[in-house]
Design a protein around this nucleic acid. Structure first.
Length: 262
DNA sequence: AGTACCACCTGACGGC
DNA sequence: TGCCGTCAGGTGGTAC
């Protein structure tokens, strides 16, 4: 479930393993994950270069190879990265393999092949073209409030809409609403100023807590709903049975007792 | 500007 | 044993 905290973790992973090493080879195990770039174009563009630095916006990870040449990695629902040495350790669902001159490799793994990798000129140009909203952990309170004021409909779909605010998916939207004690079926128009501010606080707390925990639910605070995101489990705050409900075609898990607002 | 619905893709799981 | 439907997850297209 690569949402913002997961992608932030992948960013640190690349930064810690793969920068400034010359790429000697690229193997495309599945070209389904390539978007707008052919295997030969990708190879021509990146072989001999290095991953120089990374940036993240929402769920996108950008890797600079040289000025004007960036990779964009989106992880879909099942994507992640694997850095390793022995060829036999390459993951079963490895889709792209970058091999470095030092003998190590980094693989873009994506079981369901819904993730996408593309070659772009710059992160800003991509963000603009894709119409992404501000990154969820970069936006300030005033920005958040004015963005939300411009939306109608359900609060959960507003949080998950990448053109509104970038980085929140189904799972973290549930956690944010749980921590803010807001019902996932609420409409944005029902939220007064005070509730919007509490929602903003929850966005920041939840995402930053998850980033610090390397997006590992086992390291999340005791009062988080994500590790208990299953029908019939008990609310970590009050013990009520957690409910599942389809909201915007997606499963929302919530506590009907704690999340009665607005 | 919304929402609904389908498609993409793979694999786990439950029912028969 | 195996076949069927359902579900999970993010996004994009299309129709209303």
């Amino acid at each position: 479930m690569p949402e913002l905290p997961d992608v932030a973790t992948f960013k640190r992973y690349i930064d810690a393993t793969s920068l400034h090493q010359q790429i000697s080879q690229v193997d495309v195990r599945s070209d389904k994950v390539l978007e707008g770039v052919s295997e030969s174009d990708l190879k021509r563009a990146v072989i001999q270069l290095c991953f120089e630095r990374t940036l993240r916006h929402g769920k996108n990870l950008f890797v600079e190879m040289e000025p004007g040449t960036w990779l964009r990695l989106h992880f879909g629902m099942t994507g992640f990265l694997q850095y390793f040495k022995r060829p036999e350790d390459e993951h079963q669902h490895s889709r792209l393999l970058f091999s470095f001159a030092n003998g190590f490799h980094i693989s873009y793994v994506c079981q369901r092949q819904i993730g996408r990798v593309s070659l772009i000129k710059s992160p800003d140009e991509y963000i603009e073209r894709a119409g992404l909203g501000p990154d969820a952990v970069e936006v300030d309170l005033e920005g958040f409030k004015s963005i939300m004021a411009g939306t109608r409909g359900g609060i959960k779909s507003a949080l998950m809409n990448q053109e509104t605010i970038a980085g929140i998916g189904n799972i973290y939207a549930d956690e944010i609403l749980f921590q803010a004690r807001i019902n996932p079926a609420a409409g944005t128009g029902q939220l007064n100023d005070r509730l919007l501010e509490m929602l903003y606080t929850s966005v920041q707390e939840v995402l930053n807590t998850a980033i610090k925990a390397n997006a590992d639910p086992e390291k999340f605070p005791q009062n988080y709903i994500i590790p208990r995101r299953e029908e019939g489990q008990e609310c970590p705050q009050c013990g009520t049975k957690i409910q599942r409900k389809k909201i915007n075609q997606r499963s929302a898990y919530f506590c009907p007792a704690c999340q009665s607002r607005p």
